[in-house]
Design a protein around this nucleic acid. Structure first.
Lengths: 141, 141
DNA sequence: TCCGTATGTCACCTATACGTTACCTATGTG
DNA sequence: CACATAGGTAACGTATAGGTGACATACGGA
């Protein structure tokens, strides 16, 4: 899942997806024709897109035909737009709250905050204060 | 727009958005409490999110209150899911085509493809062969 | 078989993303 | 005022992303 976000972060790779959308089944060299960079550079991007399952391919003879796959984007949609669209209402409520009360937003701080800038990796290994420690949860996006 | 993709590419920044979704209006230090890294590291991520307009903030006294903004995600939705959802039908048609005909996919190559690996930046500045050259179009995502 | 095309792999270089320490500014509070 | 807290800036080290040339492999046709 993280791979999808990373893959989409590059303009080159997003353009590759657009190209594959316009010309499904084109080859690696076909894609290369759209870019200034060498074939090897394009292939690296294709590899990243492939790892993210945003691009699928099928070898036919000596050439590889490329297709894009909308499923991961669909997953991003499910994870982000549905989950974050509810936030529209939430934020409006929030703003309404502040306008009416003129005070601080609801629950502005509930965690036992740690000290400040100075390093605190050592203490974070002790059991204390760890029930709110979401850090290093292995990226559950 | 590119900034939004780049901002979303980091697991840390996506988690910050989740945190701000769960606790709108919390401060910089509140966010820092969720991470192992130092406050400066978190602030850099916040800056990137701010540049992408995924996070807004408002200074109150000496503390800054943070909110996330779903609008850019909404834009990504418009750009990618609606545009790419049509591809579902397109790909199915594509696959159906190949299954029935057993041949190569429709329009597998229409561009005049250039040579191969070797550099060709020089020629790309000549007018010839440039009507298919989408390169350096200044990233119109 | 011999050669050209199409792709795949390897080692390497360089710009930049990410995180750090050190230091600075502003705002509360005794 | 003295001092702690909250945030902001600058300079810097390091891992990695993105790109390269050299070389290898595989297929197809004369």
């Amino acid at each position: 899942m993280d791979a999808v976000f990373v893959a989409l972060a590059s303009p080159v790779r997003r353009r590759i997806l657009d190209i594959l959308k316009a010309r499904p089944g084109c080859t690696v060299n076909d894609v290369c024709a759209y870019f200034e960079m060498t074939r090897i550079g394009v292939m690296k991007h294709l590899q990243i897109l492939n790892d993210a399952m945003l691009v699928t391919s099928r070898k036919e003879g000596r050439s590889r035909h490329l297709f894009h796959n909308a499923v991961p984007i669909r997953m991003i949609y499910d994870r982000w737009t549905t989950e974050y669209s509810e936030v529209w209402a939430q934020r409006l409520t929030e703003i309404k709250y502040k306008v009416e009360k003129g005070g601080t937003p609801p629950r502005p701080g509930k965690l036992s905050r740690r000290r400040r800038t100075k390093r605190r990796r050592i203490e974070s290994h002790s059991g204390a204060d760890s029930n709110v420690d979401m850090t290093r949860k292995k990226e559950q996006v």
